[in-house]
């Protein structure tokens, strides 16, 4: 049985690993299909302290991974399908049927981009439908793309996409943006960006790849269709907590709740939560790392008791 298993490999998980490894707890980090977390789909990170000129997200994560490994962190790739937190020994069951037992569990599973769940969205994944403008914008040079969302992410993605695309259409569900004033001003001033208010996407159409989007006006209920080569979804993030339903307390939005203020303790003794999975307020790399550190210290103290 392991002393501590860390589920997730973003800044929270890897910072927990650095602290746990240095405390000689021989942590095991279990990583899923996106090792390194959300920072691996960003470019320059300009708000991580210590880098005057910024650092590339993937590079930062690679360094963190190596730093944790230096102190004896082990890594395991796998998809955890089930957890049993009811006994003193916590058991993780992987998709291949294998299991792993641990005394303490640190949950740093983070959050994932949300999808609309409309027809065509799954079908054209990687064929014009994307949740990552920085990854896929390149392929839409001089093309027409649609960005769905009214928050900071959507505004940022739309602005970024104008570097490549000839035309960017933003679909905003309401008649105003939710994003910051500065980002709004930037997007509004951009000639390549057209904003369609009170508009939702109903269906993505295509033939092998995206060719258009069916729209509906939320006020008049009027339906229309526009041509598009790309469809970028930026409607926010959803914490990855399905695995813990019924075992850990969470908000309606799915974010895990902490049982004791200024700690990372969940209601289950020996289970700690850090990073975006338990933070719907700040959601920054540096706050994730901070709570990851707290979780390792909390776990260490708990194991000693």
């Amino acid at each position: 049985m392991r002393d501590v298993v860390i589920l997730g490999s973003g800044p929270a998980g890897l910072t927990a690993a650095i602290y746990a490894a240095r405390a000689d707890m021989k942590p095991l980090v279990v990583h899923g299909p996106q090792p390194g977390g959300q920072l691996t789909i960003t470019t320059e990170v300009d708000n991580w302290p210590g880098f005057e000129n910024g650092i590339m997200g993937p590079e930062l994560m690679e360094e963190m991974k190596k730093q944790a490994a230096r102190f004896g962190t082990e890594y395991k790739e796998g998809w955890v399908e089930k957890v049993d937190l009811s006994a003193e020994k916590k058991t993780l069951t992987f998709s291949d049927g294998s299991t792993l037992d641990t005394k303490a569990l640190i949950v740093t599973t983070g959050a994932s981009a949300m999808w609309l769940g409309i027809p065509g969205e799954q079908e054209f994944q990687g064929k014009g439908v994307s949740a990552c403008a920085t990854c896929d914008g390149f392929f839409f040079r001089d093309k027409k793309v649609v960005v769905v969302g009214g928050g900071d992410t959507a505004l940022e993605e739309a602005t970024f996409l104008t570097k490549f695309a000839g035309e960017v259409v933003m679909l905003v569900r309401r008649d105003e943006f939710r994003g910051s004033k500065a980002m709004q001003a930037k997007a509004r001033a951009n000639d390549k960006i057209t904003i369609m208010w009170n508009t939702s996407a109903k269906e993505i159409v295509g033939d092998g790849k995206v060719t258009g989007v069916k729209l509906v006006n939320n006020q008049t209920k009027e339906e229309s269709e526009i041509e598009a080569d790309g469809f970028f979804v930026a409607i926010g993030h959803k914490p990855n907590t399905d695995l813990f339903k019924g075992q850990l307390d969470m908000l309606d939005s799915g974010y895990l709740t902490i049982a004791e203020p200024f700690t990372t303790k969940t209601k289950v003794p020996g289970v700690f939560a850090a990073g975006d999975v338990a933070d719907h307020v700040y959601r920054q790399a540096v706050t994730a790392a901070g709570t990851g550190c707290m979780a390792a210290l909390d776990a260490e103290r708990w194991l000693e008791e």
Binding site: P35, E77, K127, F139, G208, K209
Partner: peptide
């Protein structure tokens, strides 16, 4: 038809037998 990277294409006998995008484990 690569519109997202990383995209992986598997060829067998010169024919495309699988194509998928996004990161994944080993």
């Amino acid at each position: 038809n690569v519109l997202s990277i990383p995209t992986f294409v598997i060829f067998k006998g010169g024919q495309v037998v699988d194509q998928f995008s996004g990161s994944m484990g080993k």
